[in-house]
Deep mutational scan, measured.
Amino acid sequence: QEELVKAFKALLKEEKFSSQGEIVAALQEQGFDNINQSKVSRMLTKFGAVRTRNAKMEMVYCLPAELGV
């Protein structure tokens, strides 16, 4: 569980995922086979993730800066 949270936060820091499906796929690539869209959705809510525009003006998920991840 701890490893999943770390990987999840690291992915969001990249600010390149525009959908929950993309986050699920990226986590599965890292070996988290039991991850699915509903789990990702709950984690996004739990950590207060928001959708914002990145440098390329794409809408992407990211974590609020005050979490200091």
Rank of each mutant, 00 (worst) to 15 (best):
A26P: 00
S19P: 00
Q30N: 05
Q28A: 09
A10E: 11
Q20C: 07
T52G: 11
G31I: 01
D33F: 13
G31N: 03
E3M: 12
S38P: 09
E66C: 15
P64F: 04
G31V: 01
N34G: 12
V60P: 02
G31H: 03
A55V: 08
E14M: 15
N54C: 03
K9T: 10
L4V: 07
V50E: 06
E58I: 08
M59R: 04
V60N: 02
S41V: 09
A65C: 05
E15D: 05
A10G: 09
R51Y: 14
L67E: 14
L63N: 03
R53T: 10
A49Q: 02
S41G: 09
L12H: 00
A65T: 11
L44S: 01
M59Y: 14
Q20T: 12
Q20Y: 08
K39R: 11
L63Y: 04
Q28W: 09
N34C: 10
R51M: 15
A25S: 11
A7G: 02
L67Y: 05
Q1E: 15
P64V: 06
S18M: 09
F17P: 03
G48T: 02
Y61V: 03
F17E: 01
F17Q: 02
K56G: 07
G68Y: 03
V5T: 10
D33I: 14
P64L: 04
L67F: 07
I23M: 07
R42Y: 14
C62Q: 09
L11F: 05
A55T: 08
A55C: 04
F8I: 06
A26Y: 11
N34K: 10
K6V: 10
L44I: 09
V50F: 09
A65F: 12
I35T: 03
F17G: 03
Q20M: 14
F47D: 01
E2Y: 11
L12R: 00
V69K: 12
F47L: 14
V40R: 00
L67M: 12
E2G: 10
I35W: 02
E66W: 09
A25D: 08
F47G: 02
V69L: 11
E29L: 11
V60D: 02
Q28C: 06
P64A: 06
P64E: 04
L27T: 00
F17Y: 15
M57T: 05
L44R: 00
Q20A: 14
V40D: 00
K56H: 11
K16E: 05
Q20F: 09
M57R: 08
A7D: 01
A26W: 08
Q28Y: 08
I23H: 00
G31E: 02
E2M: 12
K16T: 08
E2C: 15
V50D: 04
K9I: 15
